[in-house]
Write a protein that binds this DNA or RNA. Structure first.
Lengths: 328, 328
DNA sequence: ATAATATATAAAACCGATTTCATAAAAAGG
DNA sequence: CCTTTTTATGAAATCGGTTTTATATATTAT
């Protein structure tokens, strides 16, 4: 049923029906007639038809690298909560860590379809910048700082520094690092730099074979820990860039009889659910993922419809959750 | 830029442009002119305008109870993969376990906006049925069986039976159960029944105080395990309806010095990431979440556009992943 | 009482596409 | 060579709404 048929059914004009849904002038009796007709028919206006005229879709594109990652899911949950409260909906794109798909969907969103975009990105390329610059709808980036765009991010550097310092203060002198690629500015580079800075400040140096790059999962942490810990002269602490990596490392230690924290301290980042239930609970830095999603969504909603917006950066604080894996 | 402006720019008629995007009759030179103009302007047709005329939105509504649950995330990942391959996108609704919001969005989708709905539901009410019956777009339900609708679900009953049998065969005689509400037909009722049937078949009875209902999280498992294990005459095995509950139970055992599996065997369901890294790795049943999402999406795509479709039920098999928590 | 303003209404134009229609040119068939 | 079919084309109608316009009526101000 379209607006004309409905208007006829209700005994009013199309314009009156439209005004009813858009708070225009409308007499009480017409309002009543329309309400009664809605009751009877269940009519509601077509989103597509509204969008074409108003240029408002009430849709926000959310681009994420991996839905089944706890951090992504929690950010998206925060986004979802705020958008729901404001009558917006999420057009979700799971890129499965495929950078090309990020570009593909940015292009898609560039034209129409959504009112704004929230982008949980990991690695930025020149192509990203060129596409994003041509975008004429607001974009908010979560988890990274990217010049020229509004961002909500975590203090990855500070968290990594604090965790490393914690272990050094407890007497670690032969540290190791299992990180992710430095191409990832946040989880990779920033945490790496925070780790190295703490080492520098405490006059401790990283032996070359003790720095490793892993994937974002448990198995990869397991394998790296194996390489790190199967030689002689093993490290006495391992900074892991994520809790999953730390969980894998702890699993390896458990299986090979290496005492955590006795022989080697281990920490992760993210304070995910997993960190409380591992063989040895993991000391980690709580990053406020859901809050990041909430803030990003609010930032985006504040930008939608505005002619131009000054890009803002919001950096969220962290808290250290100390658990057994770094006890001394 | 709209189709008229673009057509003028390209030096062809509106109709020609439309035909270009919809594979109509078009001479080679016109095709070339249009391609050149697209190159130069980046024009692409408006989704809203297309949708209004074709009544196709290329959008699928996905309603899920909790995004940050690993099972939901994996199902959604499967859905996303298939829809992507077919040029569809996901309109995501996270209901945060609020049944009213489920109804609200079913209502919203009922009218327009999406071409089909995938519903990861937990508890069905009469209101659900009445709304879903009025739906004139296809709906596929994941994780539950619901008469009259196409469903993709797991063999919760069989998995629970097999896990329980495994523990009974290893000599357990005083079983306990930590489940979720029976209102949830799959994770609640079906697993509960599978557990009870195994007990019946092995002539073992459940002491009343050894059956408990928990929430879907680690802390709740911890608390239930505490109640279960702090008295005298404690159970010698605990069937947990989810891995999270089992992880909580294992954490309690670890903290209170109860030996797993020595004093009490524990199992979970879902074979989530967590089950491999807990203090004692958890025996669990692998449910194919991502596959469920993939199958559901395919089922839905097969129904879209068809006048009427016979509802189908697809029940996916499970596999037992035996780990230390049930060793004997 | 009259002018100015606020409220209320329907018709018509418009949003940006697709599709039908009428017509023409080219290709194929006999 | 003429008829039929296929290919190609732009104008116009249509999809389901919103918004402008023009006009009428009711209030308020002076």
């Amino acid at each position: 049923m379209n607006i004309s048929e409905f208007a006829e059914y209700a005994g009013v004009s199309k314009s009156a029906v439209s005004r009813y849904f858009n708070n225009g002038y409308l007499s009480a009796d017409k309002r009543e007639m329309i309400e009664k007709a809605i009751e009877e028919t269940g009519y509601s206006p077509s989103f597509s038809a509204q969008a074409i005229k108003t240029r408002v879709t009430k849709l926000v594109g959310v681009i994420i690298p991996k839905l089944s990652s706890e951090s992504c899911a929690r950010i998206t949950e925060g986004i979802s909560q705020v958008l729901y409260e404001h009558g917006y909906q999420i057009l979700l794109v799971n890129t499965a860590n495929d950078y090309n798909r990020e570009i593909e969907y940015l292009e898609l969103f560039r034209q129409n379809r959504v009112d704004g975009v929230i982008f949980l990105a990991t690695v930025f390329t020149e192509v990203h910048r060129s596409v994003m610059n041509k975008m004429h709808i607001p974009v908010v980036i979560v988890g990274q700082q990217y010049k020229g765009f509004s961002c909500v991010c975590h203090d990855d550097y500070g968290a990594a520094y604090a965790l490393t310092e914690l272990m050094l203060k407890k007497g670690a002198v032969r540290p190791a690092y299992i990180g992710v690629t430095d191409e990832d500015k946040a989880a990779g580079e920033a945490r790496h730099k925070g780790f190295l800075k703490a080492l520098a400040d405490y006059d401790i140096k990283l032996e070359k074979q003790n720095g490793m790059t892993a994937e974002f999962n448990i198995d990869s942490g397991y394998k790296c820990a194996k390489r790190l810990l199967s030689g002689g002269n093993i490290p006495d602490c391992i900074f892991c860039a994520t809790d999953n990596i730390a969980a894998g490392a702890i699993r390896y230690c458990r299986e090979s009889g290496i005492k955590v924290p006795g022989e080697v301290m281990i920490c992760g980042v993210g304070d995910s659910k997993i960190s409380t239930v591992t063989a040895i609970p993991i000391t980690s830095a709580r990053l406020h993922y859901k809050t990041a999603g909430i803030e990003a969504a609010q930032m985006l909603l504040n930008s939608i419809g505005k002619a131009s917006v000054v890009p803002k950066i919001m950096k969220l604080d962290y808290e250290i959750a100390e658990r057994e894996s770094t006890d001394r």
